[in-house]
Design a protein around this nucleic acid. Structure first.
Length: 821
RNA sequence: GCCCGAGUGGCGGAAUGGCAGACGCAGAGGACUCAAAAUCCUCCGUUGGCAACAACAUGUGGGUUCGAGUCCCACCUCGGGCACCA
């Protein structure tokens, strides 16, 4: 399955068949929009799945999603207590609010990424490292807004752990692990006069070296900790930090800045009073927004301590011999080394040299004494799921007068987009951080307000005017492909089990093969795994994962040219002259990059198609290199595969008459051997997605036929069928001319005859000390001893040995002979 | 800084630890042609040699092995991802 394509396309032989199949499915072909999201069926089931998620919650005890009714039942029997107050005493409205806090899809007023240039909010995964939108490259601002989110964070562990079950590249798995960012450590409590300060650390074993603490400027306890004499400096620092957004803060120089609050906290290990500072290198959005600083073992803390003359205490004897007097160090020490200065009345780490052991002993001690516990934190945040666009699935949600969300009943699905002629979201000055989103649906008052009876009698409700992101449909479309016309459910469980069910114990199930670009690593591929796991937990699918084997194809690159100002110029207007590249007569520099508008180097496949035909375009793309490698497009290379196709054609068809011109003489054993080697090789290459070498083998076979003067009649069918997967149009045409009436699609793919894969005799290269000095031809079934004897008797070998007796002779059957002289 | 990849002719690239450069592009020569295009044939890593052949060659330096583009160690360069993440 190729991302974004309808299944009709994967079986269609040509555009007409594709359109016909689409018509049969009641769909239309629209190049600008993916088929999936224009189909009311997809809208309907995407909304239905959304409601499944909305009406479920995550049970941490079972580590899985469950239906919301089960939570209500547990509240009723007091098996679980509500987070706010007494469930049995709550009013209906209070109960709604309580439940809404548990849902896997929820509305919250929290920091989101607002992109005024696009006019919509976007997910964390859609923001680039430099704080811009991945589409359009507009600035993105963190703002509190009321938006839909999905509780993907509850699946963080399973999303990491189940990567083990998948046949994906290590690079892609690493990207997902990285993005989820699980770090194991401990939370530790430090007492202060303003209350308990809790920090997260991955190195609880270094607690004895914690000589100060740093809070994020936004930390809620900063006000209470700030002493009157420090109030001015703290306020000024916080104001400065607030004026900068996250991205500016991170892009600023890494000079350490910060201000002392004037207060101290107690290091629970040794009772020392350590100063509490604020600094912008501590982020409110990660961990607890507060850190303990261990300057001897962390470079950032070390820099901070040096800048502000804070104490540094060594807690390890550095392995590089610099000694334990930290005042003489020029950098922090990181690594395994024996602990020193690390003991109190009830815990002694001194002398240990294993971080793992010291960590587990510290964790035990923290729990025993009530100072903390082992904890895991994640970088992953909940998924921002609403957008302020027109195109997208509307939320099947309405709000009552108290702004509580209600799901619409299944019978009214799909909620279709209302008619309008104003599709664009309102966009703003890209830098106007204070602007507010306006969905195109907001303007359609007639659509927004509905009268409905959702159990409380007929009432007026307001529709949700957001739409779902483009990822919603792609989160589950592969499931719909298994059962595209089903009107009763999104996929029949029997179909899902047949196509995607686990193939044995420990197998996660999922599609057999998924080909897609690596740019989806932490977008589509993360989101769809999450949805799939929710559907699995709720019992709708039998597979644990949506995509079992994933293959990342490389990008097609093209030359891009920059003028002296560094601005990209149209690559088609660049000429090469004496090894120099010129645009408008001025020299430009060349680089290779992903094709696209920004580099002005896109090549329209239509033009290649018009000039050479679709088969040539397709074949060129497959032949130019391995599927997973990015490689440059070279117009001048296309002619190579074009010539190959023409040679095949001329070997089969007489260009004068248009009828076949096959050799009536049956193929000789040489030709049959080449044919069957080709069959075996092409099969193997196709199985392993090595299209480039499969094509090379076909070219070799065809070159062999060209030398024969044409194609013997008895191998013509095989030649054409071998070619069919890669040049389907021409193969179909040749097939017809060879007298077949049924489509070549249904012709069986040739099978190699093992008898024709072996030869009577084998040419052995004979090496002396690893260098080829001669070759001998030996019967294929000759015993190693016989091969050795023949090699030793060879004139060139004798001459090269000069009468000396070899120390050793190695015969690799069927491969070679190596003589050690 | 951390995590993934990748470095082979003029170019794109081939090579289960076993003849490095398959196949294609570009280039050179030839046949056909009045000529050109197209087509077909031959050559085509570097150096030396008329040649047979020899030496050197898969980013650099070591190692393992009868044998290394392939495996191991260190380094260099390029591409991608993440990053004041505690």
């Amino acid at each position: 399955v190729q991302s974004g394509q309808h299944p009709a396309l994967t079986t269609a032989k040509n555009v007409e068949t594709y359109r016909r199949q689409l018509r049969r499915l009641g769909l239309s072909h629209d190049r600008r929009r993916s088929v999936a999201t224009t189909d009311p069926g997809y809208y309907r089931w995407t909304q239905w799945i959304f409601l499944q998620i909305f009406n479920s919650w995550f049970d941490p005890d079972l580590n899985k999603a469950r239906r919301i009714e089960e939570l209500v039942a547990e509240f009723d029997t007091c098996a679980r207590t509500a987070t706010t107050g007494d469930w049995s005493a709550m009013s209906a409205s209070e109960r709604r609010r309580e439940l809404d806090q548990w849902r896997l899809a929820y509305v919250s007023d929290a920091p989101v990424n607002w992109c005024p240039g696009l006019g919509t909010v976007v997910a964390n995964e859609e923001v680039t490292a430099d704080g811009r939108s991945d589409r359009g490259n507009f600035p993105v601002f963190k703002r509190n807004m009321r938006q839909w989110k999905m509780r993907i964070t509850t699946y963080a562990d399973r999303l990491i752990d189940d990567l083990e079950l998948l046949d994906w590249t290590d690079a892609l798995k690493a990207m997902q692990r990285n993005w989820i960012g699980r770090s194991e450590g401990a939370t530790v409590h430090f007492e202060s006069h303003a209350g308990r300060l809790t920090v997260f650390t991955t190195r609880p074993d270094t607690l004895f070296g914690a000589t100060f603490m740093v809070l994020a400027p936004e930390h809620p306890l900063v006000d209470a900790l700030t002493t009157p004499e420090q109030a001015g400096a703290i306020a000024a620092y916080r104001a400065k930090a607030a004026a900068e957004d996250d991205f500016q803060r991170q892009n600023d120089s890494r000079e350490k800045t910060g201000v002392f609050t004037g207060s101290y906290a107690t290091n629970p290990m040794n009772g020392e009073q350590i100063p509490v500072w604020i600094a912008d290198y501590v982020l409110m959005g990660y961990g607890t927004g507060a850190i303990m600083a261990v300057p001897c073992g962390d470079q950032r803390d070390f820099d901070f301590a040096r800048t502000f003359a804070l104490p540094i205490v060594a807690i390890q004897e550095p392995s590089d011999g610099r000694g334990t007097d930290a005042s003489s160090w020029s950098e922090a020490f990181v690594g395994d080394a024996p602990y020193v200065n690390s003991a109190n009345d009830s815990l002694d780490l001194n002398g240990l040299s294993s971080v793992a052991e010291a960590t587990s002993r510290t964790n035990e001690w923290l729990v025993q004494h009530g100072h903390g516990e082992a904890t895991v934190t994640y970088k992953l945040r909940d998924w921002l799921f609403s957008r302020q666009r027109y195109w997208g699935e509307p939320f099947p949600i309405v709000y009552d007068e108290d702004d509580n969300p209600y799901s619409l009943p299944d019978q009214v699905l799909p909620v279709l987009l209302p008619d309008t002629d104003q599709f664009s979201p309102r966009t703003f000055d890209p830098d106007d951080a204070q602007s507010n989103p306006e969905s195109p649906l907001d303007r359609l008052e007639d659509w927004v307000w509905i009268e409905a009876d959702l159990g409380d009698g007929p009432k007026r409700y307001r529709r949700d005017t957001n739409v779902m992101p483009q990822w919603a449909g792609s989160c589950w479309y592969e499931l719909r492909y298994l059962d595209p016309t089903n009107k009763q459910m999104f996929v029949d469980p029997a179909n899902e089990a047949y196509w995607m069910g686990p193939q044995g114990p420990g197998h996660p199930g999922g599609t057999d093969l998924y080909v897609g670009g690596v740019e989806h690593a932490v977008l589509h591929l993360l989101y769809s795994r999450f949805w799939h796991k929710v559907l699995y937990d709720l019992g709708h699918v039998s597979s644990v994962e949506p995509f079992h084997k994933l293959f990342n194809q490389g990008y097609i690159l093209a030359a891009a040219y920059q003028d002296e100002r560094g601005i990209y110029v149209d690559s088609f207007e660049v000429v090469e002259q004496d090894g120099q590249y010129l645009h408008d007569g001025k020299p430009v520099t060349r680089e290779y990059g992903k094709m696209g508008k920004s580099l002005k180097n896109a090549i329209a496949p239509d033009e290649v198609c018009t000039e050479y035909g679709a088969d040539t375009l397709r074949l060129y793309l497959m032949a130019m290199g391995p599927l997973d490698a990015s490689r440059p497009w070279e117009n001048k290379d296309i002619v190579g595969v074009y010539r190959f196709l023409q040679r095949v054609w001329r070997n089969v068809v007489d260009e004068e008459t248009g009828s076949t011109r096959l050799l009536s003489e049956p193929a000789g054993v040489d030709t049959l051997r080449v044919l069957h080697r080709t069959i075996a090789g092409v099969r193997d290459d196709l199985d392993n997605l090595r299209f480039n070498t499969a094509i090379a083998k076909l070219i070799e076979f065809n070159n062999h036929l060209t030398k024969l003067g044409g194609c013997p009649a008895d191998v013509a069918d095989d030649l054409v069928v071998l070619l069919a997967p890669m040049a389907p149009h021409m193969a179909e045409e040749l097939w017809t001319r060879l007298g077949h009436t049924a489509s070549i699609t249904f012709a069986p793919f040739p099978v190699a005859d093992p008898a024709l894969l072996v030869t009577d005799s084998v040419e052995y290269p004979v090496q002396i000390n690893g260098k080829v000095r001669s070759r001998v031809t030996v019967a294929a079934d000759a015993a190693p001893d016989a091969v050795e004897a023949i090699a030793m008797a060879d004139e060139k070998v004798k001459a090269a040995l000069g009468g000396n007796t070899p120390k050793k002779v190695i015969v690799v059957p069927g491969r070679m002979v190596n003589i050690v002289a």
